[in-house]
Design a binder for these strands. Structure first.
Lengths: 227, 227
DNA sequence: GAGTGGTCTAGACCACCAA
DNA sequence: TGGTGGTCTAGACCACTCC
């Protein structure tokens, strides 16, 4: 490796071998650039990368210091469910269980920041991998953001359609665990009480709430990431 | 907002309003730089940022295209448990339940890439928030990476000590859900079968496996991230 | 081979903020 | 208010890869 990445790695090495201790200031950009024999812009790129990774903290005038509590920062890729299943070499299936307009429950409305009552699409779908229940999706969808023609969500998942047809802005994701209730257990083909991996997703455009989804994954599901 | 961020946002806007469609090539750096009236380096910065976010795909000669399957990419901060508890305004507590050298179980060894038998420290700890069980930790720790003097892990958590005293390299994190067994339920003060949020962490230095930890969180625990 | 993105440079100005 | 990082420029060379 050459260039700014090599410099970044050397800085990281010095931190790891405790040449530079946590909480301690390291030399400024110009000094390090001179030491490494590169332009300041190149040194800046290396240090900026480490700051983004949480290894360094940088402030104007105060300088650059080694982070005191090295927050481990992971990057998480959230794929579309169909691709997730197909990447395992399994056949993807989708069953739309329910679709109706309904009053948004208070808990969902609060999460989306809705004031007052609102009617959203309420959809329940079962995603299958090789015909076996993989994921139970309970979704509330703002009809106002849907351009015509609205697709038949029995064929394409709401998420997959949204992601390519609606200009999505901010989003929030929450991971948790929950015991399956009777309804969920029946649909997923599990004993009641099974531990489900729960993913809640909320999405907004620049202005409007778009959707709230509660995804309950069958046992065995894992989210994996490297640091 | 000004500068390269404003340019990035404008490019993002064009993608969201479908001026530039998924899978479609956008003009090259030089053309866009001219259009926006900036140097190519500035245009590059904006486009590189969107590529890192998964919105664009860039290849030399082929050019820059709007990603076909917009992978939503989230950044996850993994804090030290003590800080996580204290940030909720609760009092952190730690109880070391068990500490002994033992043969690494096959499942753990496989995850760490260990060949043959190895003796690691085996530690079990209970993390408390306001005196209530918060997290049950089951950890295997490579004694070879521990410099002297090894601390008393009854006072400081293994993770917190590691992160500031051992040069950590690569890491892997896996999230899942599991039903509490009798042992876990007793220690966490829960009915057996409760859904636990499970985090498995593996860490290596540049060369050696350092630790494998299985963290079982009490119900109510959530991992939250913004996109 | 040629077009594209990736990187580097030397210099400059600016925004922030601790001293 | 001065030192520091943040950004921008104009130009250059290079690495990759599609044609």
């Amino acid at each position: 490796m050459q260039g700014w990445e090599a410099i970044r790695d050397e800085v990281l090495r010095r931190i790891r071998v405790r040449d530079w201790l946590p909480g301690e200031n390291i030399p400024n950009e110009q000094m390090l650039a001179t030491e490494f024999g590169v332009a300041r812009a190149t040194m800046n790129r290396a240090l900026r990368d480490l700051a983004a990774a949480g290894v360094l903290e940088r402030r104007r005038k105060a300088g650059t210091r080694v982070a005191l509590h090295p927050v481990r920062r992971a990057r998480l890729d959230i794929p579309v469910t169909r691709l997730e299943v197909e990447e395992r070499g399994q056949v993807y299936g989708l069953r739309l269980l329910y679709r109706a307009m309904a009053l948004v429950p208070r808990a969902v409305a609060a999460g989306l920041g809705l004031v007052g009552d609102a009617q959203f699409w309420h959809l329940q779908s079962l995603h299958l991998a090789d015909g076996v229940p993989f994921l139970l999706e309970d979704r509330w969808l703002n009809p106002a953001v849907l351009p015509e023609p609205t697709p038949d969500f029995a064929q394409i998942s709401v998420n997959e359609w949204l992601v390519t047809h609606v200009p999505l802005g901010a989003g929030e994701i929450v991971f948790s665990a929950a015991n399956a209730d009777q309804h969920e257990a029946d649909l997923l083909g599990l004993p009641p009480g099974s531990a489900l991996f729960i993913v809640e997703r909320m999405t907004w455009t620049d202005v409007w709430p778009v959707t709230h989804a509660r995804l309950a994954y069958a046992p065995g599901y894992r989210v994996r990431t490297r640091i």
